[in-house]
Amino acid sequence: MNATTGPSPTRRTRVAVVFGGRSSEHAISCVTAGSVLSALDRSTYDVIPIGIAPDGRWVLEADDPERLRIGGPDQLPAVDADRPGVTLARTEAGAGLTVSEPSAPPRALGEVDVVLPLLHGPWGEDGTIQGMLEMADVRYVGAGVLASAVSMDKAYMKIVLAAAGLPVMQSITVTAREWAADQTGAVERAEQLGYPLFVKPARGGSSIGIGKAHDAAGLTAAIEEALRHDPKVLVEVSAEGGREVECGVLETLDGGVETSVPAEIRITGEHEFYDFAAKYLPEEHTELDVPAVIPDEVAQRLRDLAAQAFRAVGCEGLARVDFFLMPDGSLVVNELNTMPGFTPLSMFPRMWAASGLEYGALVDRLLQLALRRDTGLR
Results as ranks from 00 to 15, higher is better:
residue 142 G to T: 06
residue 225 E to T: 13
residue 243 R to Y: 14
residue 22 R to M: 13
residue 224 E to A: 13
residue 196 P to M: 04
residue 82 D to E: 06
residue 95 A to I: 05
residue 43 S to Y: 02
residue 20 G to P: 02
residue 354 A to N: 05
residue 150 V to P: 12
residue 191 E to H: 03
residue 98 T to P: 09
residue 99 V to Q: 10
residue 46 D to V: 06
residue 24 S to R: 05
residue 119 L to P: 01
residue 109 L to I: 03
residue 336 L to N: 04
residue 217 A to G: 06
residue 94 G to Y: 10
residue 13 T to S: 01
residue 135 M to W: 15
residue 26 H to G: 03
residue 247 C to T: 14
residue 119 L to Y: 05
residue 286 T to L: 05
residue 371 L to T: 11
residue 217 A to Q: 14
residue 346 S to L: 09
residue 25 E to C: 09
residue 49 P to A: 03
residue 278 A to K: 07
residue 210 I to T: 13
residue 77 P to K: 02
residue 86 V to M: 06
residue 337 N to K: 00
residue 344 P to H: 11
residue 129 I to V: 15
residue 46 D to A: 12
residue 189 R to V: 00
residue 173 T to F: 06
residue 105 P to A: 06
residue 358 E to Q: 01
residue 267 I to E: 09
residue 296 D to G: 11
residue 4 T to R: 15
residue 87 T to Q: 13
residue 232 K to F: 08
residue 320 R to Y: 08
residue 109 L to T: 10
residue 101 E to M: 14
residue 329 G to A: 13
residue 118 L to W: 10
residue 133 L to H: 08
residue 337 N to P: 05
residue 178 E to P: 00
residue 189 R to K: 08
residue 150 V to L: 15
residue 235 V to Q: 08
residue 120 H to R: 11
residue 299 A to S: 14
residue 52 I to P: 04
residue 83 R to W: 00
residue 378 R to P: 10
residue 119 L to D: 07
residue 239 A to L: 13
residue 283 E to G: 04
residue 164 A to M: 14
residue 205 G to C: 02
residue 294 I to Y: 06
residue 139 R to H: 12
residue 41 D to Y: 02
residue 236 E to P: 08
residue 225 E to V: 08
residue 65 P to R: 00
residue 117 P to R: 08
residue 329 G to Y: 14
residue 29 S to Y: 06
residue 192 Q to G: 00
residue 340 P to G: 10
residue 368 Q to T: 02
residue 357 L to G: 05
residue 244 E to Y: 10
residue 76 L to S: 00
residue 248 G to R: 10
residue 285 H to W: 12
residue 324 F to S: 07
residue 217 A to K: 12
residue 77 P to L: 07
residue 229 H to M: 05
residue 47 V to P: 01
residue 208 I to T: 04
residue 350 R to K: 15
residue 342 F to Q: 03
residue 288 L to P: 00
residue 177 R to F: 04
residue 99 V to P: 13
residue 300 Q to E: 15
residue 162 A to C: 01
residue 1 M to D: 10
residue 25 E to R: 07
residue 231 P to M: 10
residue 12 R to I: 05
residue 30 C to Y: 10
residue 267 I to L: 15
residue 311 R to M: 12
residue 313 V to Y: 12
residue 361 A to D: 00
residue 35 S to V: 02
residue 351 M to S: 05
residue 194 G to M: 09
residue 168 V to R: 14
residue 291 P to S: 07
residue 285 H to Q: 08
residue 192 Q to H: 06
residue 287 E to Q: 12
residue 221 A to C: 05
residue 350 R to Q: 15
residue 49 P to L: 09
residue 291 P to V: 07
residue 294 I to M: 11
residue 217 A to W: 00
residue 45 Y to R: 07
residue 334 N to A: 09
residue 49 P to R: 11
residue 179 W to T: 03
residue 96 G to C: 13
residue 373 R to E: 11
residue 322 D to P: 08
residue 368 Q to G: 01
residue 94 G to M: 04
residue 113 D to N: 13
residue 263 A to V: 09
residue 360 G to P: 00
